[in-house]
Computed example of a mutant assay.
Amino acid sequence: MTDPKSFSPLVAVTADVRDADGYRWHAASETYVKAVLTGAGGIPVIVPSLGDALDIEALLARVDGVLVTGSRSNVHPALYGAAVDARTEPYDPARDSTTLPLIRAAIRNGVPLLAICRGQQELNVALGGTLASEIQDLPGRDDHRSPASEIQEERFAIRHPVEIVPGGCFARILDRDTIAVNSLHRQAIGQLAEGLDIEAVAADGTIEAVSVRDAPGFAVGVQWHPEYWVTTDAPSARLFRAFGEAMRARAAAQTQRVAAE
C-alpha cells in the first residue's frame, strides 16, 4: 500500500515552445519545477507541447497530478471567440493544442490539477469561458502588470490583497479571509466558464482564483504566482501542500482499489 508520507507523486508540468539557437525548445521555468519538488513533494516531468501527437490518456495514466504553468504567451483569441490583436501577442498555439485537452482530460479523470496564471486562463477557456485583454485599460480596473524591473524579486513581489470567498475550497486550504499576492498579467478571466466557481477576487473585481465545480478530484486555478514564494510565503506553501496531499490521497486510494481486486 502507498505510504502517503513517503510517496513522491509524479507531476506533469506543461511546457512553452520557444525557438532559440536553431532549435525548437519545449521548456518550463525552473520556479515551477522547483515548487513541485519543494512545495508539493513531487517529481516534476516536463511534458512537450506536441498537440494531437501526444497520447494524453496514456500520460495521465502514469502521472499523479498536472501543473499548468504561467507564461509570457497568451491563449490564442480564436479559441474563445475573440479577434486577433497585436496587443495580446505573443501566442503559443502548440501549447494551446496540448494544454486545453490536457486540462479537460485531467478533470475528467480526477487527476489533481493546479493551474497558475496563464494556466488559470487556459482552464477557463478549456471549459468554455472567455478572457479579457489589457485589463489595466478597462474602466475601474487596476494595473495587474508586474513592475518594470530586471530584478525578478521585484517583478514577483507580493503587492496586493485578494478576498477569499467564504465556504469555498480556498477558504479551507488557506484558512484566511484575505491574502496578499503578486500580480504579473495583462489578461484575466472575462466570462467565467459555466463549470467554474470563483474562489478569490481582487478589489477591482478581477477573478483571482477558481475551482472546478463537482470535479472528481482537486482542480483549481490561481491568477497569481504562488510558485515563486512557495518556501517563504505561508499561503503559497499551503496551496502547493494541498496539491501534494491531493495527489497522495488519490494514489493511496488507487493502491487500495488494486489491492482489493
Score class of each variant (00 low, 15 high):
115 A>K: 03
115 A>E: 11
116 I>C: 08
116 I>E: 00
116 I>L: 05
116 I>V: 12
116 I>A: 11
116 I>W: 08
117 C>R: 01
117 C>K: 00
118 R>C: 00
118 R>D: 04
118 R>W: 14
119 G>F: 13
120 Q>H: 03
121 Q>W: 10
121 Q>D: 11
121 Q>E: 13
121 Q>K: 03
121 Q>F: 10
122 E>N: 00
122 E>V: 03
123 L>H: 04
123 L>Y: 09
123 L>Q: 06
124 N>F: 05
124 N>R: 05
124 N>T: 10
125 V>S: 03
125 V>G: 00
126 A>K: 07
126 A>R: 12
126 A>T: 15
127 L>W: 10
127 L>V: 07
127 L>C: 03
128 G>E: 08
129 G>A: 06
129 G>H: 05
130 T>P: 07
130 T>E: 01
130 T>A: 04
130 T>G: 08
130 T>D: 01
131 L>A: 02
132 A>T: 11
132 A>H: 03
132 A>G: 03
133 S>M: 04
133 S>W: 15
133 S>L: 06
133 S>P: 01
134 E>Y: 06
134 E>F: 04
134 E>V: 02
135 I>Q: 10
135 I>F: 05
136 Q>G: 08
136 Q>T: 05
136 Q>F: 13
136 Q>M: 14
137 D>R: 10
137 D>Y: 15
138 L>Y: 05
139 P>K: 11
139 P>S: 07
139 P>D: 14
141 R>K: 12
141 R>M: 12
141 R>F: 15
142 D>I: 01
142 D>M: 09
143 D>K: 07
143 D>P: 11
144 H>F: 15
144 H>W: 10
144 H>Y: 06
144 H>G: 11
144 H>K: 01
147 P>N: 14
147 P>H: 05
148 A>P: 04
148 A>E: 15
148 A>R: 11
148 A>D: 14
148 A>T: 13
149 S>R: 15
149 S>A: 09
149 S>H: 13
149 S>Q: 08
150 E>T: 14
150 E>N: 06
150 E>K: 14
150 E>S: 15
151 I>G: 01
152 Q>A: 13
152 Q>Y: 14
152 Q>E: 02
